[in-house]
Design a protein around this nucleic acid. Structure first.
Lengths: 130, 130
DNA sequence: ATTAGTGTACTATGGTGATAATACAGTTAG
DNA sequence: CTAACTGTATTATCACCATAGTACACTAAT
């Protein structure tokens, strides 16, 4: 997965979301070691302090834990991990609906535009059985 | 239409979007007079300078015009006005798809969540014939 | 002409976000 | 022990955003 920074949202928030996605997809699993702050900063070409801020945020959200001067680890709380994907999607939907509210958009128009936006076939049209 | 400020996006951008929506819905029509900066600042409980910044942004986007020290007016360029709604929706869809990309969300799940988010029946499920 | 209302411009302050450069304490591999 | 790596903390600078206060030129109504 590649991270692509916007100008709008704070970088440290985008870093948090980046790791949330990784956890939601199982690319980062419970108890797994996180990359070091400096290493990640170099890799993402951002400031170590920004990474530190992101990690601090993730700690407050119970996504990772850190003991002393050892590399941070993904939480082992499966309960927390399970919720990540749902929260990401629900948050995105909330922001989306908020932004198009009162514009009298039909469901058909939305679905059409969303499908078109995906384009590269990332979105599955089949049912998952909810 | 009521404006509800987020903490995320700059206030002056939210003011611009607020007026874009009004224009897209025909609440503000071509050539119509805009409220004065000070008046609007009082009404929205924000600083006149913030309103001024929003109006300057709208001028650069050709949404309004101002001559000398007369109240600003909505552009008479129907071409510009026609595009507003499409741009608003497309932009929202782009941001939305971007945010849920790589999360393996099915179309069914999305539609379900979106409908649920609307809830109060703002979203029409019938086709408009595009 | 006076007054109140326009748009516009400027300075200043405070908060947040991002960067840069250090510094320190603790851990680990050599 | 030493060296290199961890996390953490601090100070400083810069940009953007929002606010406050003030000022000026012009227009319109009186």
């Amino acid at each position: 997965m590649i991270i692509q920074f916007n100008t709008r949202a704070p970088v440290y928030i985008q870093v948090v979301d980046y790791f949330k996605k990784k956890m939601a997809l199982g690319e980062l699993q419970a108890g797994e070691e996180m990359p070091s702050r400096r290493e990640l900063a170099t890799e993402l070409k951002i400031n170590p302090n920004t990474v530190q801020k992101a990690f601090k945020e993730m700690e407050e959200q119970q996504l990772i834990t850190t003991e002393r001067n050892r590399p941070s680890r993904v939480t082992t709380d499966e309960h927390v991990l399970k919720r990540i994907r749902t929260e990401l999607v629900d948050e995105a939907v909330a922001v989306f609906v908020e932004s198009i509210q009162e514009l009298d958009v039909t469901m058909d128009e939305l679905v059409d535009k969303i499908k078109r936006q995906y384009g590269e076939g990332n979105l599955d049209d089949r049912s998952t059985g909810s």
